[in-house]
């Protein structure tokens, strides 16, 4: 890999990891959500680097657009119901850190032992290719997914609905 590529990747990695740390360590809930947005966008960049253009776009649209918006909404609404900004402290960091480190260690350990050969160049997977997969090999999960989305929508409405007095 060329130096530029390494640099690019490193920056992306730093942004991602830094944003993640911001999400979990921030004292302000809104800040946490915004850090998450940063992570999601940076990940989209990573996808692009990995020749997953369509996915990068979907990531930005759905995650950074949809999810983050939803999260902000929820934060505002809950704050209103709670009667003030939501406290965002964290507790029990030591043991959590231990577990997280263990997870990281385990996963990296396995990873670094693995032999993965990467072909030099691969055919680019574009939206058309993905579309063909959806309607071809993965048509069933695709249809089920649409049912799931409807169910989720209805479920969310049903749960959050205010009961009529």
């Amino acid at each position: 890999m060329s130096t530029l590529e390494i640099l690019g990747l490193s920056i992306l990695a730093l942004v991602i990891l830094g944003g993640a740390l911001g999400t979990v360590l921030s004292k302000n809930l809104v800040h946490s959500v915004l850090y998450l947005a940063l992570v999601l966008v940076a990940t989209a960049g990573l996808y692009a680097r990995l020749s997953a253009g369509f996915l990068a776009g979907a990531q930005v649209l759905l995650y950074a657009g949809g999810v983050v918006t939803l999260a902000i909404f929820a934060v505002m609404l809950s704050a209103r119901m709670e009667g003030g900004p939501i406290p965002n402290e964290s507790g029990k960091r030591a043991r959590a850190a231990l577990v997280a480190l263990a997870v990281a260690g385990l996963l990296s350990g396995v990873l670094l032992q693995a032999q993965i050969t990467v072909p030099a160049s691969v055919p680019v997977v574009d939206a058309a290719e993905i579309g063909r997969s959806f309607l071809g090999e993965y048509v069933l999960p695709f249809e089920v997914l649409s049912v799931l989305l409807v169910a989720a929508m209805i479920g969310a409405i049903a749960i959050a609905r205010r009961e009529d007095p």
């Binding site: 809930l29 402290e89 507790g91 959590a96 577990v99």
Partner: peptide, 8 residues
């Protein structure tokens, strides 16, 4: 494991 509020 750390966060105390549900959104976190």
């Amino acid at each position: 494991l750390t966060r105390r509020n549900a959104i976190g």
